[in-house]
Nucleic acid binder design. Structure first.
Length: 270
DNA sequence: ATGACAACCTGTGGGC
DNA sequence: TGCCCACAGGTTGTCA
């Protein structure tokens, strides 16, 4: 489920319930995530007090007085606060109970996600990550410069985490539509001006999705944890074969790039 | 360095 | 109804 907006929404949703609270107990029901949760994990967490939460790319970080919890939701994971008496369901792999009685519950059917306890705040997974798209440093000039020797398709280029983080399949499709660029155009054959438009489109679509997610996921306690950004009206994603909202003449074309669906309008995107 | 692709999993929905 | 297949919001690692 999670792209960057949902991870950010999740972070904002859980922060008020964990900040300043101490971990009372940890239950791991299934250690087999993307990387197996090591045996000492529970012991390391218990007694720690959460001092802050952060997001880097699609990673959620919870800092404590000593060490840091690093969480990734993979393709289908979710994290929400539940009451202590709520019965765990299938794929509820980890519970972290706090001294306020609330439980942070990790759910991940496909187990593509991960959880690591960091002694400091560094981890190899966080090295080599590209720019955060919402920072000012991420702009058209940066993209243009990065694209110089990239002959691959622009969609794959903007989904490359070494270039810019957090642009998943949905938002890559949407941003390219907004910027009027075909997803299969070689990255090094796009002008600087069009990269300016693309950088703005990426910021726009992500920021808008965070806003929408924020309103839908207001209450994490007892909430259902569903993705809020479904409320957002998608222009192309999932609309292959349907009429383009912009020109209203052509039907959207759907192709596959690296085995991921790409949808675009052959008239509006060049 | 770049790029193509398999791999890690389960659930769901469409076609027959 | 049931079965089989394609596909799903991500990322890493391997190999050419």
């Amino acid at each position: 489920m999670p792209e960057l907006p949902e991870v950010e929404t999740t972070r904002r949703g859980i922060e008020p319930h964990v900040l300043g609270h101490k971990v009372a107990s940890v239950i791991v029901r299934d250690r087999r995530l993307r990387w197996a949760i090591p045996p000492g994990f529970e012991t390391q967490l218990v007694g720690r007090t959460i001092t802050g939460t952060r997001r880097r790319a699609k990673y959620l970080l919870m800092d404590s007085d000593s060490g840091c919890l690093l969480v990734h939701l993979g393709m289908a994971g979710s994290l929400r606060m539940v009451a202590p008496d709520e019965q765990p369901r299938k794929h509820d792999h980890v519970d972290i109970e706090f001294d306020n009685g609330l439980v942070l519950r990790y759910h991940d059917p496909r187990r593509f996600g991960s959880m690591h306890w960091l002694t400091g705040s560094a981890h190899p997974l966080l090295d080599h990550l590209g720019l955060e798209p919402l920072l000012d440093a991420f702009d058209g000039a940066y993209l243009y410069q990065q694209a110089r020797r990239r002959g691959s398709a622009i969609k794959l280029f903007i989904m490359d985490a070494k270039v810019v983080v957090g642009v998943g399949n949905i938002y890559a499709n949407e941003a390219l539509f907004m910027a009027g660029i075909r997803p299969d155009r070689p990255a090094n054959k796009v002008s600087k001006a069009r990269y300016e438009a693309l950088a703005m489109a990426i910021k726009d679509v992500l920021a808008t999705a965070i806003d929408v997610g924020g309103t839908t996921l207001r209450d994490f306690v007892g909430g259902d944890g569903k993705a809020g950004y479904f409320a957002q009206s998608l222009q192309v994603y999932g609309r292959g074969g349907e009429f383009c909202y912009r020109c209203k003449v052509k039907r959207l074309k759907e192709i596959r790039q690296s085995n991921r669906a790409s949808v675009f309008c052959i008239t509006c995107q060049r």
